[in-house]
């Protein structure tokens, strides 16, 4: 597993733990009320689970698994994928703190997530191609 995928997946695992913790507190309170303020964790719970955990894990695994170039040695423009990693994590936190921050914070967070998707798409697009053997396209293997 390449370095960037390890960052993506480890971050995703931490978000999963945080998301499960927030969700667990909310569900516990729903059944046995103990502190009404836990409902304020709901936006962060949703953000951590959907983008921090699920989307980020998919990005990490896609970066790892999808076809490569040059006989399997290169993953192409990795800078765009690293940028996506930074942007999605900034976005998740900005949206998560949105309910207790000025309104522009959530908008900025969504913008970061949008930019992360675009950046990751720019990295991944050329890697979505037919494969011949282990991650090498037919055209690449001829070269």
């Amino acid at each position: 597993m390449p370095r960037l995928s390890r960052w993506f997946v480890r971050a995703a695992l931490l978000y999963q733990l945080l998301g499960f913790s927030f969700g667990g507190l909310i569900l516990f309170h729903k059944g046995v009320p103990f502190y009404a303020e836990v409902w304020r964790l709901l936006p962060a719970h949703i953000e951590f689970m959907l983008f921090g955990w699920t989307a980020q894990l998919a990005m990490g695994v896609a970066f790892w698994i999808l076809p490569r170039f040059g006989g399997g040695a290169s993953r192409g423009n990795e800078k765009a994928a690293w940028l996506a990693f930074a942007l999605i994590n900034a976005g998740v936190w900005l949206v998560a703190i949105g309910p207790v921050a000025p309104a522009w914070v959530t908008a900025l967070g969504r913008l970061c997530e949008l930019a992360a998707a675009a950046s990751f798409g720019a990295h991944l697009w050329p890697r979505i191609k037919p494969v011949n053997g282990f991650g090498t396209s037919r055209r690449e293997s001829v070269r």
């Binding site: 733990l17 569900l27 516990f28 059944g31």
Partner: peptide, 15 residues
């Protein structure tokens, strides 16, 4: 409600 509270604990432990 205790079913929900138990569910919360079990799912958190699963994670």
């Amino acid at each position: 409600g205790w079913l929900l509270a138990s569910s919360a604990i079990l799912q958190w432990l699963a994670g």
